[in-house]
């Protein structure tokens, strides 16, 4: 499916625990194993609070796992410190949901975009004008916008500026956290078209957090489904509609309102609430909401098994060969 020589980042047995009230422990990520490949997009889906952002923060070194490794080109970046860590940050950049809130409102667009380049002494202050223009044009915005401020721009323009800034350092990889969720669908569409075009031109690896299954299947090469901190399924992007296997992935899919859906059928939804990450069941994390739960599910946690090319499922219903 994907060529192992194109493996650029690998998360191995990543677990993150947070201390909680009354001496309890909250497990936000539990033994996560994922691979990111050169020039490809991995979409991470799941309900709010399931641990998606916790995981992506490790990739951009904003947090460290309690256990496990994040191997970037073979080197464990969770061990990097000081100047080495600072230099490494150029390789993986992040785009947030609301760029207006992540940048100083007093900065002009020119400075927002050029700040990382100046920090790493990649350009001289005298080059700012020219570079900002080029980067704005790369994201299909007029160069004149360099003189404006974030708050004078529309949501879609701001997101383009954030992308220009993230790509300024020519990173190998970018991580986008719900980067288009706040936009109108027509604007969202143009941003996705831009991202996929830039990915083709620059061969960038993308990690994309999203809760919209329709959106993620439109441009992700791989999709990973997370539930209560566990990856329950990883599959090729085009498989999510027709070929997803895990009962949780299917339940997510069944609750999507889609303009192409069958309107004569009642929408399905899981009626119960997600259990708190403080009370993850000992066996399968989904067992108390799964309508196919068996005796073994309550006792033994299923691990990811390969059931097809690039397709892994953690569920006792699928006893394929060991991954």
């Amino acid at each position: 499916m994907f060529d192992e020589k194109d493996l650029i980042l690998e998360a191995k047995h990543v677990t993150r625990r947070f201390p909680a009230a009354k001496g309890k422990v909250l497990t936000a990520n539990n033994d996560v194993n994922l691979k990111f490949y050169k020039g490809k997009t991995l979409g991470l889906v799941g309900e709010s609070g399931c641990g998606k952002s916790t995981f992506m923060r490790f990739l951009v070194s904003l947090d460290k796992p309690s256990e496990g490794e994040i191997l970037y080109k073979g080197e464990d970046i969770t061990k990097l410190k000081g100047e080495k860590l600072r230099q490494h940050r150029q390789n993986i950049q992040m785009v947030f949901q609301d760029p207006a809130q992540s940048f100083n409102p007093k900065m002009k667009i020119r400075d927002v975009i050029c700040e990382p380049l100046l920090n790493f002494k990649r350009i001289k202050p005298s080059e700012k004008d020219k570079v900002a223009r080029e980067l704005l044009e790369m994201v299909e915005l007029p160069g004149e916008l360099a003189d404006r401020y974030m708050h004078n721009m529309s949501g879609g323009q701001r997101q383009r500026v954030a992308i220009a800034r993230a790509l300024a350092l020519e990173p190998e990889m970018i991580v986008m956290d719900e980067a288009t969720s706040a936009l109108d669908v027509s604007v969202q569409k143009t941003i996705i078209e831009l991202i996929t075009k830039l990915q083709r031109e620059k061969n960038i690896t993308i990690g994309f957090i999203c809760h919209d299954l329709g959106l993620i299947q439109s441009f992700a090469h791989q999709v990973a489904v997370m539930y209560l901190g566990n990856i329950v399924e990883v599959m090729p992007g085009e498989d999510i509609g027709e070929n997803c296997k895990h009962p949780y992935s299917k339940a997510l899919l069944a609750s999507v309102f889609d303009i192409k859906m069958d309107f004569t059928k009642k929408i399905e939804s899981i009626d119960s609430e997600i259990p708190s990450p403080l009370d993850v069941p000992p066996g399968c994390p989904f067992c108390d909401r799964c309508d196919q739960c068996m005796e073994i599910c309550k006792q033994e946690r299923p691990i990811l098994k390969e059931i097809g090319p690039g397709h892994e499922v953690a569920c006792h219903l699928y006893a394929g060969k060991e991954a």
């Binding site: 997009t41 109108d184 669908v185 027509s186 969202q188 569409k189 996705i192 078209e193 996929t196 990915q199 919209d212 299954l213 329709g214 959106l215 299947q217 439109s218 441009f219 992700a220 090469h221 992007g237 085009e238 999510i240 509609g241 027709e242 899919l253 999507v256 889609d258 303009i259 192409k260």
Partner: peptide, 26 residues
């Protein structure tokens, strides 16, 4: 709305809705 409108703007909105099994950019 979904099948008979000839309004251009309505079409633009509908086209932009990401749909399971719909357009793929990659």
């Amino acid at each position: 709305m979904l099948y008979h409108s000839e309004n251009e703007y309505t079409h633009k909105l509908l086209d932009a809705v990401p749909s399971i099994g719909g357009t793929r950019y990659v």
